[in-house]
Amino acid sequence: MRKNNLRHFQLISIGICLLAGTTLSAQNDLLAELEDETKDETQYTFATFKGTRVVNLQSPEIPGKGVLQYSILHRFGSFDNEFFYNFLGLDNAQIKMGLDYSPTNWLNVGWGHSSFQKVYDGYVKYRLVRQSTGAKTFPFTITGFSALYYKSQKFTDNLPHDDTERLSYVHELVIARKFGKKFSAEIVPAFTHFNVVETKDNNNDIIAIGGALRYKLSHMIAVTAEYIYQVNPNDYTHFNGNVETYANAFSVGCDLETGGHVFQLFLTNSRGVTEPYTIAETPGRWLDNDIHFGFNISRVFTLQKPKVPKEG
């Protein structure tokens, strides 16, 4: 009998607790309930960098699905003794024009031509994973970039050449993170391969590690800095006869955004406008005043409008 009473008492207490719980949850704010239901939804980070490039390095960004991007890249002549003779570096400017298109939100394909060594290039850029919080949490956005370059400049040595000698390749793996509203950083392991190099002592494969930072001053202006360290840089013969080692490219710049345009203005020691030449064949050094003013301009056109998932 006593045992039975105790059991009843236990049951009643449990019942009261449960009832109290039900009533409490019903009294809870509906909004808190909704927030609780949705709090685990994955939030993806966006706009880690403004443009699809920082300066010479790729950024993790890919234009949205159905977007065509037209870009013009310029590197003016250096601030050397001939700077004014070359009309503020304009006379010996290098230019690259490019078009790229995103058939999906994670893939971008592009084509371009650069006046530096008359290089044609084609590339694919693909986002592997996005920085996110919530149900799926990941600390970085990782984007791959693989490009093929064809140097079309005529050979002048009157020796027989094969077309494959003109090819080079660059692969970049952009590992980026947005820290808060203003600051973003990326680390970019890069692999460059030249089918043919100048001497047999030179490396065909150059390993490099790039790093870039971005800090937003306002919604429309940001400052950027970028450095590409070569693990095994090649030597080259300077026109003064000295054998020198190719420099690491360092750039500082600023991003300006106005609607559909992004203007990137910067100073860099790199003269080449395409990746193999900026990463592995930059002769100029900042300390020798071999600094070039340059800009990247891009404009986007929406060819295919984003579709809204239908309610269902």
Binding site: F46, A47, P63, G64, K65, G66, V67, G260, V300, T302, K305, P306, K307, V308
Partner: peptide
């Protein structure tokens, strides 16, 4: 969702 991805950004 906007008409242009850039507007959304």
């Amino acid at each position: 969702v906007f008409e242009k991805a850039l507007m959304q950004e």
